[in-house]
Amino acid sequence: MSILINSETTFIVQGITGREAVNLTRENLDYGAKIVGGVTPGRAGRDVYGVQVYDCVRDITAKTRVDGSVVCVPPRFTRDAVFEALENGIKLIVVVTERIPRKQVAQMVELANLRGARIIGPNCLGIISPGEAKMGGVGGPAANTKTAYTKGSIGIMSRSGGMTTEIASTLTAAGMGQSTAVSIGGDAIIGTSYAELMPLFEADPQTQAIAIYSEPGGRMEAELAEWTQENNSRLPIVAFMAGRFMDEMPGMRFGHAGTIVEGKADTTAEKIKRMTEAGIAVAERISDIPKMLQERIGEAK
C-alpha cells in the first residue's frame, strides 16, 4: 500500500502556469503522477506538458475524479485557492507556497477540518510513495528522485523538504526503501502534524517503521510522543533532531518560521527528553538512522 497517495491518485495543480509549478508538473509527470488538469484563472485553453489548463477548479471536478490538489500560487492568493479546492470537494491539498500570512493559514486549516479534508503544508515539498507517485516538488527531477527514493517499508515525516530527501537517500543507500515520505512543512501553523499522520502509517501494512526529521519550536514532537504512548503504536520510530545549537537562543528564528523557540518545551533538549521517554529513539547523526531503524525493527518482530 503506502499512505495518502498511490499510482491511482488523481490530482490537479493550482497556479500551474507559474515557473515553479511548471517544473513541478514536469517532475511529477515524469515520475508517473496522474495530473488531470491545472488551474490558472484567465489562462484556460493552454497546456503545460500536455496537462490542460482551466480557469476554475470546478471546470475539472465537474468532469473527472480529483483526489488532490497541489497549490502553488503566490502567498496573497493561496487562501483563496485552497478555499476553491475545498469547496469543490477536494480532500487532499498540498500547499507548497511559503510566507502565507499565518492567520490565513489558520483559516484554511479550519475550513479543511470542517470539510473533512487534509492539508499538507504550507511551505512543504509534498508527498511521495516511491514507485507509485509523487505529488509536489519532493526529490526534484524524476531521475534524482528515483536515485534517492526506493520502495520499501519505512515511513518518513519531515518538517524540512530538503531533509525528507536527505533521509530517504541515506535509507536507500543502506538498502532500506520507503513506503511514503511526507514533507509536512516548516511553518508554525501547518495542516497535518506527525501525530495526525501516525494513524495512517499505523494502518498501512507496508510500513514497518518511521523516520522523522524534527527541529526546535512548537509541540509537534511532544504530541507525537503522546500519540505513540496512548495508542501503543506498533511502529518503531527514529527521530533526527536538528538545531540543537539553538537551545540557548530563545526567540530566534532560523529559516523555517516554525523553529522559533517560545518556551522551554520548544527546545531540542526538552523534545529529545519527551520522545525518549515515549520510546522514540533520537539519532545524533543522519547516517545513524538506518542502523537504529534496523535494530528496532528486529526487536519488534
Partner: peptide, 29 residues
C-alpha cells in the same frame, strides 16, 4: 540550501568543535 539542512550543518560544525559565523538558507530556488 534548505533551512533543515542549514540547521543540521550548524549542529555538525558544533559537534566537530567549530563555531559557525552564520545561519544562511539560500532557499529552494
Amino acid at each position: 540550501n534548505g533551512a533543515g539542512l542549514a540547521m543540521a550543518t550548524l549542529d555538525v560544525i558544533n559537534v566537530c568543535g567549530g563555531n559557525p559565523a552564520n545561519f544562511l538558507d539560500a532557499g529552494g530556488g
